[in-house]
Simulated scan of single mutants.
Amino acid sequence: MDWKIELIFVPVTDVDRAKEFYVEKLGFNADFDQRVTEELRFVQLTPPGSACSIAIGEGLGGSLAPGSLDVIQVVIPDADAVLAELRAKGVEAEGVDEQPWGRFVTLRDPDGNRWTLQQLPDYSAA
């Protein structure tokens, strides 16, 4: 039986600002944006090439404060290229942090939620 993580909630204060950042700056696909009720708005965004999406919105009942998320790690093909692309789009990204287990770029969304982007080591060379 397969278990697939398909949606992660990211707490934000301003849904439109966050959606613009993720779509315009990071290149996420805007899959869904629906105001279900006056109190509930659900927005689903998917990183390019990912099977897992993020959800932002209003009234979703998350227990995390906006800006407190710092546990998402995403695999990328080339840390140098991604860092250059992010900076060209005006994203304040840190990197490249060289470690034996990968090369890392970090960034924060407008609320301060921290993302870690990892280029995996080339295990075929070992």
Rank of each mutant, 00 (worst) to 15 (best):
M1Y: 02
M1Q: 06
D2M: 08
D2L: 08
W3E: 02
W3P: 00
E6F: 05
V10C: 05
V10M: 06
P11D: 07
T13F: 02
T13Q: 14
D14H: 03
D14I: 03
D14E: 08
V15H: 04
V15L: 06
R17Q: 10
R17P: 00
A18F: 02
A18V: 01
A18Q: 02
A18C: 03
A18L: 03
K19W: 00
E20N: 05
F21W: 04
F21K: 04
Y22D: 02
Y22W: 11
V23A: 09
V23I: 08
E24S: 13
K25F: 00
L26P: 00
L26E: 01
G27P: 02
F28L: 01
D31V: 06
F32T: 04
F32K: 02
Q34L: 13
Q34P: 00
R35V: 06
V36M: 10
V36Y: 05
T37N: 05
E38N: 11
R41D: 06
F42Q: 12
V43L: 12
L45S: 09
L45A: 10
P47A: 15
P47C: 12
P47Q: 12
P48G: 05
P48H: 02
G49C: 02
G49L: 01
G49N: 03
S50I: 03
S50Y: 09
S50V: 04
A51Y: 05
A51E: 15
I54P: 09
A55P: 00
I56S: 07
I56Q: 07
G57I: 10
G57S: 10
E58C: 04
E58A: 06
G59W: 05
L60W: 11
L60M: 15
G62T: 13
L64R: 15
L64Y: 12
L64I: 00
A65G: 04
G67N: 11
G67F: 12
G67E: 11
G67L: 10
G67I: 11
G67V: 12
S68A: 15
S68K: 13
S68E: 14
D70K: 14
D70F: 06
V71M: 13
I72M: 15
I72W: 09
I72S: 11
V74K: 03
V75Q: 14
D78I: 00
A79P: 07
A81E: 09
A81C: 02
L83W: 01
A84L: 13
E85H: 07
E85R: 15
E85C: 04
L86I: 03
R87N: 05
R87I: 04
K89F: 01
V91P: 06
E92N: 13
E92M: 11
A93H: 11
G95R: 08
V96L: 04
E98H: 11
E98N: 08
Q99E: 14
W101H: 13
G102I: 07
V105P: 03
V105R: 03
T106D: 11
T106S: 15
R108L: 05
D109Y: 07
D109T: 08
P110A: 09
P110E: 09
P110S: 09
D111C: 08
D111H: 04
W115F: 15
T116D: 09
T116A: 11
Q118A: 14
Q119D: 03
Q119Y: 02
D122H: 06
D122G: 04
S124D: 11
A125Q: 13
A125E: 13
A125D: 05
A126D: 02
